[in-house]
């Protein structure tokens, strides 16, 4: 068994756990914001939230899986750790950027809604 496959088996569970946990947090805490934006229209907010969660999972897990295709060949344990931390870092930073972007947009929406009223 080559080092590459070992790296993949370490990488995939970590990324899956991070993404599922982060997505679940967004799902539960974002609902409050959406409730404000859509004037407490509960079934609509529930369905929007579900769809956003599914889209988030699809895109992020897809990206996480697709990085496997472009992984460099790993030849030793230290190199394995290097590449692992590099790829995980890229994905986590990307997630955080998306997250801040989301928070800013939601904040803007809630503010513009409250100003209108």
């Amino acid at each position: 068994m080559s080092y590459n496959i070992l790296t993949y088996t370490i990488y995939l569970p970590i990324i899956a756990v991070i993404m599922v946990k982060v997505g679940w947090r967004f799902y539960t805490h974002g609902e409050v914001f959406l409730m404000h934006v859509f004037q407490h229209n509960t079934p609509l907010v529930k369905s929007i939230n579900n769809l956003l969660l599914i889209g988030y999972y699809l895109v992020n897990l897809g990206y996480g899986i697709i990085t496997l295709a472009y992984w460099e060949t790993v030849e030793s344990i230290p190199q394995m750790l290097n590449t692992l931390s590099e790829h995980l870092g890229i994905i986590i930073i990307g997630l955080s950027l998306l997250h801040y972007n989301n928070v800013l947009v939601l904040n803007y929406l809630v503010k513009s809604k409250t100003l209108k009223q």
Binding site: I5, Y8, I48, L51, L52, I54, G55, Y56, Y57, L58, V59, L61, G62, Y63, G64, I65, I66, T67, L68, A69, W71
Partner: peptide, 23 residues
């Protein structure tokens, strides 16, 4: 594994984008 990951990951991203377009 690498070929499959490219295909399945690519399809999953594509599906996510289709979902957002529908939304």
């Amino acid at each position: 594994i690498e070929i499959l990951s490219k295909k399945i990951g690519g399809f999953s991203i594509y599906l996510g984008i289709m979902l957002f377009i529908n939304l």
